[in-house]
Design a protein around this nucleic acid. Sequence first.
DNA 1: AACTTTGTTAGCAA
DNA 2: CTTGCTAACAAAGT
Length: 244
Amino acid sequence: MPEGPSILLMKDNLSQFVGKKVLEAAGSSIPDKKQLVGKILKEIRLYGKQTYLILDDCCIRIHLLMFGSYEVDEQTKPDKNLRLALSFKNGKAYFYTCSVKLLPLDILKTIDWEADVMSDIWNPEKAKQKLKASPDMMVCDALLDQEIFSGVGNIIKNEVLFRIGVHPESVTGHLPAAKLNALISEARIYSFDFLKWKSNNTLKKHWQAYHQKTCPICGKPLTSKITGKSKRNSFFCETDQKLY
DNA sequence: AACTTTGTTAGCAA
DNA sequence: CTTGCTAACAAAGT
């Protein structure tokens, strides 16, 4: 169940199969397994929450959506949820309850890789331009917009807004320059904190706002509210997060 | 046991 | 044809 950082961990787990040949394919998402068998997994590339398994002449796009999961080597989950399984000589990869689509390699050229907040080529200036182009958008929606902050999900949204002291229903066009910059930089910084804490199983322990009862700064109760066009839950402090 | 949820998209109305 | 909204869908944890 994945936001961007969790997908990065998945990529690490799958990297042992890069350069290896697909010996066998299974699962409900790919009707014609022959398209995959015999192909080499050339590279794994991420775009936010999307994973591209790049083969010789096509690629597989995997999105775990809300409830998807994966396993390496051993299948412990039921076949009915199995969307894709790939066998290599050194092990197997299983993907459950997710979106799996076989696509032409051309699709890779259409992706704005610089929009991925965890990418080496993340482009904060470009994000700023996109935000300025939508000055009426609420910040809670802006952070979840995968065209602007690819990889950010609801947890990252809430923690970033708490860290920078901005109310989720603030409008991007009203943010002072310093807050706008903080929004953009913290989206990346928190994502890497998420990655670090997720890896050592202490993610929940570090939540300051998401699903928390009281504000760690002032001790008052946090507000929980469905916000913005995205209609996702926001957890925030009315005192310490300013509405712009 | 009912409710929630780390997300997206098909489908339809305007 | 585009924009915007809602419903649908998924499965595991609380």
